[in-house]
């Protein structure tokens, strides 16, 4: 039984989220201002916080900064602001993830699950030699298996190889042709969008929301990359 704090000044959103999260057997705490959230975290054991940014008295950004002084609880920001600069700001001050309104409840649930698993079970895992770990993705090259936030995903050989190439070089951008030549070991003449299609399938398997990927990012007009430390 994990304890989740939902902090939003909009009562309807708080109760809707409560309904969804209750079905997953989480214990819900609610707050309508940043200060309230701080108080609740001080008095209770909280495992994850969903925090709105625009709130009266103390907004989500200041509350997150204050919380990070003492706790390393996963914090997911909820906001109507969808600017890239807002996301960067939110993640830089210590939030773990970012969901824009209006959100899809299923996605919220998936992200909550993912962060809880990593916070509770995967947090302190030691890095083993044959393991490649980036964010929640754990690749065991001996067993040729991949887990995302602890859940196994099934990949085709090509997808596995592409993921491995990108994970071995985090942050580096590979063009489609480079990836093709690496994986298929052939000249990439006239291969069209083969690699791009594989990457999209791969993204659908390892990302919660494939159109807003956390790990496998598209660099438009250049290629693909895996973020070094995704959203952390």
């Amino acid at each position: 039984m994990y304890h989740i704090l939902i902090c939003d000044d909009e009562k309807d959103i708080v109760s809707a989220l409560s309904i969804y999260l209750s079905t997953e057997n989480y214990k819900i705490f609610t707050a309508s201002t940043g200060q309230e959230a701080l108080d609740i975290v001080a008095k209770n054991e909280i495992h994850l916080i969903l925090m709105d940014i625009m709130m009266p008295q103390m907004d989500g950004i200041s509350a997150t900064v204050r919380l990070r002084e003492q706790y390393n609880i996963p914090i997911i920001l909820l906001t109507a602001k969808s600017e890239d600069s807002d996301k960067v700001l939110g993640l830089n001050i210590g939030a773990d993830d970012y969901i824009t309104k209006p959100f899809n409840p299923v996605e919220v649930l998936a992200r909550v699950r993912s962060h809880l698993r990593r916070y509770t079970s995967l947090g302190g895992m030691a890095k083993r030699a044959s393991h490649l770990v980036i964010g929640g993705i754990d690749m065991d090259d001996d067993a040729k298996s991949v887990t995302v936030d602890g859940e196994p995903v099934s990949l085709t050989p090509s997808e596995y190889n592409i993921l491995k190439l990108l994970m071995e070089n985090p942050g580096r951008v590979f063009s489609s042709n480079q990836i093709y030549e690496q994986i298929w070991n052939e000249n990439a003449y006239g291969t069209g969008s083969t690699v791009a299609v594989h990457i999209r399938h791969l993204r659908e398997k390892i990302e919660i929301n494939p159109s807003e990927p956390r790990y496998l990012k598209v660099v438009w007009g250049l290629g693909y990359k895996i973020e070094k430390e995704a959203t952390q």
């Binding site: 909009e10 309807d12 959103i13 809707a16 989220l17 969804y20 625009m54 109507a80 602001k81 309104k101 209006p102 959100f103 899809n104 409840p105």
Partner: peptide
């Protein structure tokens, strides 16, 4: 649009 988005979130969720 920000102001529209907040009630819209509730509508979609409910």
């Amino acid at each position: 649009s920000h102001d529209i988005k907040t009630p819209l979130t509730s509508i979609i969720n409910y």
